[in-house]
Simulated assay, not measured.
Amino acid sequence: MTFHRFTRYAPGAALAGAIQLALLAGPAVVTGHAAVDPLTTWCELYLGQSKGEVMAAMGDPGGHQADSLIVTVQWMHEGATTAEWNPPGAILFAAFDKDEATIKLLAYDAASGVEGSVRPTGLACDPWRAS
């Protein structure tokens, strides 16, 4: 009879345990994601991807090392918006059309700047992707 009671309540206990484990593991998972190399994340982005998806993957933009590109992008694409990230050694620049689809993903070496056309060290994908 004791075994019957155990098997009767086991699925509920397993669910409760899984929920507790998920609650405990939650912060560790977020910390692990934040530790991913930004250049690896950058290479996983693609043209046509939504601005929201890019922002979610890369985090909050910041930096002004690619300001000269903003004028050019806005001149070429009416209603375009841009974002920039500056992880160590790199300048990462994204441009989005008026419908918030990614139209440019440009990566430069921070020491050379955006005029230098030098890819950042450690970048495993094409540094200049544009539609």
Rank of each mutant, 00 (worst) to 15 (best):
Q20E: 11
Q20C: 15
A22I: 11
A22S: 10
A25F: 07
P27M: 08
P27H: 09
A28V: 14
V30L: 14
V30N: 11
V30S: 11
T31H: 14
G32Y: 15
G32N: 15
A34K: 15
A34Y: 07
A34T: 12
A34M: 11
A34V: 09
A35R: 14
V36R: 15
V36A: 13
P38K: 08
T40Q: 12
W42F: 10
W42P: 01
W42S: 04
C43F: 07
E44Y: 07
E44H: 13
L45H: 04
Y46R: 09
Y46S: 11
G48W: 00
Q49L: 06
S50D: 05
K51W: 01
M55A: 09
M55S: 07
M55D: 08
M55Y: 08
A56M: 15
A56C: 06
A56I: 05
A57S: 12
M58R: 02
G59F: 06
P61R: 05
P61S: 03
G63A: 00
Q65H: 12
D67K: 06
D67M: 07
L69W: 10
V71D: 13
T72E: 12
T72F: 11
Q74V: 09
W75P: 01
M76D: 12
H77T: 14
A80P: 02
A80L: 01
T82P: 02
A83M: 05
E84I: 04
W85S: 06
N86L: 11
P87S: 02
P87T: 06
P88C: 05
G89K: 12
L92D: 03
L92G: 00
F93Q: 00
A95F: 00
A95V: 01
F96T: 00
T102P: 01
T102N: 00
I103A: 00
L106R: 02
Y108A: 09
Y108M: 11
D109I: 09
A110S: 09
A110Y: 06
A111R: 11
G113V: 05
G113Y: 03
V114G: 01
V114W: 01
E115Y: 04
G116K: 12
G116I: 11
G116P: 08
S117L: 15
R119W: 09
A124W: 05
C125L: 03
W128Q: 13
R129K: 10
